[in-house]
């Protein structure tokens, strides 16, 4: 009987304590600096080395490049760059290997969509996803 009452005491005490729940989605949840969210992609920086696509454990990056239009410059520039967020596990490996930081993590994480097709993000979308970039300001 005593044990029961003790337990009742604990719940009663907790009743007046501070609540710990977040007000999400009314207030956005602040994620830490290192958070691995949806990537931001900068086509200018990309040198089409294909390392990110190779390291990706789920093969969700597809990219194509073409010769640099300026004949004096060597190397390639990126043509298309897609990440399939149906299977991307946000593991951070692509951003880890990228030599030029063309692909970086952001702190955005809201990916919910009504259709699977919407989860297929192209270069433009990834480029526009330019808020809360890891290592950036704010």
């Amino acid at each position: 009987m005593l044990g029961l009452l003790k337990g009742m005491g604990v719940t009663l005490k907790n009743m007046t304590k501070k609540k710990v729940t977040y007000k999400y989605p009314d207030e956005p949840v602040k994620m830490p600096e290192r958070f691995r969210g949806i990537q931001h992609f900068d086509p200018e920086k990309c040198i089409v080395c294909n390392q990110c696509a190779r390291v990706c454990p789920t093969d969700c990056i597809t990219l194509t490049g073409r010769k640099h239009p300026d004949p004096n410059k060597r190397g390639k520039i990126i043509d298309t760059y897609d990440i399939n967020f149906e299977i991307c596990i946000l593991c951070d490996l692509c951003t880890e290997v990228c030599p030029t930081e063309a692909i970086v993590m952001t702190r955005n994480f809201e990916l919910a969509a009504y259709s699977r097709d919407e989860l297929f993000k192209d270069m433009e979308w990834l480029h526009d996803n330019n808020t809360k970039i890891r290592g950036g300001s704010q």
Partner: peptide, 10 residues
């Protein structure tokens, strides 16, 4: 509500 309060929820 009450159960929520007792469980640190609102």
């Amino acid at each position: 509500k009450v159960i929520g309060w007792m469980q640190s929820r609102i």
